Amino acid sequence: MKDSAAMSLEQQALQVQASQLLPMITRKFFKLGYQNMAHQRISQQADNTQIYQGITRAQHEQFGDVMIKWQLSMDDCSSEFHNEAKVLRALEQNHKNLIATAPSVLAFDILHLKVLEKQQTLTLLVMPYYAQGGLAKYLTQPLTELQKHQLIMQAARLIAHLHNAGWSHGDIKPSNFIINNNHSIDTKNPALLLTDFALAKLIDPNSVESAKKNNLKTSSGTPAYLAPECWQGCSTTVQSDIYAFGIMLYEILMGERAYKIDNQSHEPIRDWAIQHCQQSIPLLPSQCRRYQLILDKALAKRVEKRYLSMEEVLEDLSYL
C-alpha cells in the first residue's frame, strides 16, 4: 500500500501532466463539435502510467448535453472502451422496443494525435449526460420503504435484462446505476439505467472455472461487492453479479454496505477477502426482515447455494 507522501507526489505529477494534456484534448473535442466542455476527471491506469483516462461533460449541436469517456494511450489498447461500446449497442438493439436498460451510444471515435512529441491514440465514447447523477448519491437522502423497494426492483430488472441479453456485468454497485431523468422527472421515484460495462462479458453457460485456493489474486471489480469465488481466482459470472446485487440490496435497505473494512487498513485486499469469504451474512432488522431470505440466498458463500438467475430473485421479490 502506498504511503500518503508517495500518493501526493503521484497526484502532483498527474496534475502537471494534465495541464499539458487537457488543452490539446479540448481543442480536439472542439473540432468534433463539442462545446462548453468541463473536464470532470482525469486519471492514470494503475498498472500503466502511459494510459490516461478521463470524463468530460460537454454540449453538442446534434447530441445535446453529453458525457465523454475518453482514453489517451500510446497505442490502441482501449479494449474496455471497445467492449463497453459493443455491450451498449447490443443492449440498445436487444431492447429497442422494450424498457431502456443502459445509456445509448451517441458516438464512438478513435483519433490519432501528437501529444508531447509522441503519437497517441485518443478513444472517445460519447453518451447522454444525466443531470440527476447516480444511485449512490441518491441513496444518501432519506427514503421511504416503498421507495427502497422500487429501487431494488428496478435494479434487479435491469440486471435481469442484461443477463437475458447474454451478458454479465462484472461490477454491479450503486454508482454504476444512473438516474434516467430523460424518462422520469419524479426524483422521488426515479427510473434507473445500468452503466459502466468495461468488465462485461458474454455469458458462456458451459464455462465452469475452478477456484484457486489460498490465493488472494482477484478478478477485476470493486472489492466491496466482489463474490467469494472471485477472491479465490474465478472470473465474474451471472452468480457473482447476483452476489453483488445482494450487497447492493442491503445497502439500499440499510444505508451502508453489508461488509466493511477499516479505512486505515494496511492490507485492504486481504481484509476484503476475509469479509466476503468468512463473515456471516448480516441479519436485517425487524422492519426489513421480509428481505432476509432473499439476502441469504443472494449472498450465499457457495455458488451452488446462490440464486441461479436474476429471474429467480425477481420472482421472490414480487411476493414481498
Rank of each mutant, 00 (worst) to 15 (best):
K114M: 08
K114C: 04
K114P: 00
K114I: 10
V115E: 09
V115M: 07
V115D: 03
V115Q: 12
V115N: 08
V115H: 11
L116F: 06
E117K: 14
E117H: 15
K118E: 14
K118W: 02
K118M: 07
K118H: 11
Q119G: 02
Q119M: 09
Q119Y: 04
Q119K: 12
Q120I: 05
Q120L: 06
L122M: 09
L122T: 02
L122Q: 02
L122F: 15
L122C: 11
L122K: 05
T123P: 02
T123Y: 08
L124H: 08
L124P: 01
L125E: 02
L125Q: 03
L125V: 01
V126G: 00
V126W: 08
V126P: 00
M127H: 00
M127D: 00
P128R: 07
P128W: 05
P128D: 02
Y129G: 04
Y129K: 05
Y129E: 02
Y130D: 04
Y130M: 06
Y130W: 09
Y130P: 01
A131L: 03
A131N: 07
A131Y: 07
A131K: 12
A131F: 01
A131H: 09
Q132C: 07
Q132K: 13
G133D: 08
G133I: 04
G133P: 04
G134F: 04
G134M: 01
L135W: 01
L135N: 00
L135T: 06
L135A: 11
L135Q: 04
L135H: 04
L135K: 06
L135R: 03
A136N: 13
A136Y: 02
A136D: 13
A136M: 09
A136R: 13
A136F: 13
A136P: 00
K137G: 00
K137E: 12
K137Q: 13
Y138F: 15
Y138V: 00
L139G: 01
L139A: 09
L139Y: 07
L139F: 10
T140V: 00
T140P: 01
T140C: 07
T140E: 12
T140F: 03
T140R: 14
T140G: 10
T140L: 13
Q141N: 12
Q141V: 10
Q141W: 07
Q141K: 15
Q141E: 08
Q141T: 08
P142Y: 14
P142W: 12
P142S: 11
P142H: 11
L143Q: 15
L143H: 15
L143F: 03
L143G: 03
L143W: 06
L143A: 07
T144C: 08
T144D: 06
T144S: 15
T144H: 02
E145V: 10
E145W: 10
E145L: 11
E145C: 09
L146W: 11
L146F: 12
L146C: 05
L146R: 15
Q147D: 06
Q147I: 03
Q147T: 14
Q147C: 06
Q147R: 14
Q147A: 09
K148F: 05
K148H: 11
K148T: 04
H149L: 13
H149C: 00
H149I: 07
Q150N: 15
Q150P: 02
Q150R: 15
Q150Y: 15
Q150F: 09
Q150S: 10
L151M: 01
L151R: 12
L151N: 03
L151T: 07
I152N: 02
M153D: 05
M153I: 15
M153N: 07
